[in-house]
Simulated assay, not measured.
Amino acid sequence: MLLCGCTQSTSGHVGSPSISYTEPPLPAGVAPAPTDRSTPAPAPGGDCGDPTASLRPVSDAGTPPSPTVDAIRARGRLIVGLDTGSNLMSFRDPATGMIEGFDVDIAREIARDLFGDPERLEYRILTSADRERALQESLVDVVAKTMTITCDRRERVAFSSQYFEARQRVLVVKGSPIRGPAELAGQRVCVVRGTTSLERLQQVAPTAEILTVPMWSDCLVVLQQRQVDAVTSDDTILAGLASQDPYLEIVGDSMGAEPYGIGITKSNEDLVRFVNATLERIRRDGTWTDSYNRWLSMLGPSPVPPAAVYQD
């Protein structure tokens, strides 16, 4: 019986399982940019004079007629398009669950002037590629989402006056041999679809192997997983990514200016003028500077808010 038991134990022995290692999965929605770029991508912006020139502000919703502003007030809330993956600009605070950031502060000030209450907001989460469609289909009242004012975009949507000037730069893991735009040639670079950052990257580094993603937080993931060599975007966005990982750094000179405006449906001129009145107020009363110091001080001392340019 003892022998039989030993034999049974031996025959029932299971060896150690084999272990295999695989590449981490890519985030959903990742796709390579087209590799056939024999015809250079158009430079961001086009030519329409000064694209940041907007409509002169009117703060009194009764003069001249303001159908869009009146309808928003009757609804009781401002519908804002943004995302929750742009740390420092618009993100969900994990401690409070609240959506916060520099762009959110701008939206709150518009709501303050509309209702006397900065909390009268409803958020619609958008990818960068969805911003124009959301405005054209009136799914949102405004887009406050690091939206660069360009001549091309102004053909489809309206913009407020400029409220921030970002600079496109490069984000890498500390110790990377990439020290700026000149080293992006032939490298794997992450960028979000539907952005001026993608257009400029195709101009500056046409031989780069470009991986496009829906959200900037996806670029953080693939950089941390070493599936790309660099990320390029506005310094505001890159600062938000770097703030989440001490092993990342922003390098190199600016690849170009990115003037931000609030996106508005093209036909809603009264809302453009109302938003511009809010932007004039926050430039004057220190609200803009307070918000910069709260969210973006890692970019350096607070600059002077960009001066508005008006076309009328």
Rank of each mutant, 00 (worst) to 15 (best):
G194A: 02
T146C: 06
F159E: 02
I237S: 13
D234L: 00
I250M: 14
V192W: 05
P259L: 12
A257C: 00
I210K: 02
A158H: 03
L198V: 05
R200K: 12
T146R: 14
T148E: 14
I178C: 04
A205W: 07
I250L: 10
L248W: 12
G240N: 06
A242S: 12
R200T: 11
A185N: 15
R179P: 01
V221W: 05
R156E: 08
Q227M: 12
D234G: 15
M215C: 00
I250R: 07
S254P: 12
R153K: 12
L241T: 04
I178L: 06
I262G: 02
V221S: 03
K145T: 02
E258P: 00
Q203D: 00
V204A: 06
P259T: 11
R188V: 04
S161L: 08
Y163N: 02
S217I: 11
Y260W: 15
S160W: 09
Q168P: 00
Y247G: 15
Y260D: 15
V170T: 13
Q224A: 14
S233P: 00
V170R: 07
T212P: 01
E183G: 05
R153Y: 01
V251D: 10
T236W: 13
S176Q: 08
R169T: 15
P206Y: 08
V170G: 11
W216Y: 07
E165L: 13
P206K: 08
Q168N: 14
V231A: 12
V204F: 08
Q187S: 09
T236L: 14
T265F: 04
Y247M: 09
V172M: 03
I237L: 13
L248K: 08
K174F: 04
S160A: 07
G180I: 08
V170S: 10
E199G: 08
I264D: 05
C151M: 02
E258A: 15
L198T: 05
A205Y: 04
E258C: 07
F164D: 06
R169D: 06
Q187P: 01
L184W: 09
V228E: 02
A239P: 01
L238Y: 03
V222T: 14
T148N: 09
K145E: 13
L171C: 11
V170E: 09
V204C: 06
V173A: 13
T196F: 05
S176M: 07
L198Q: 09
G261N: 09
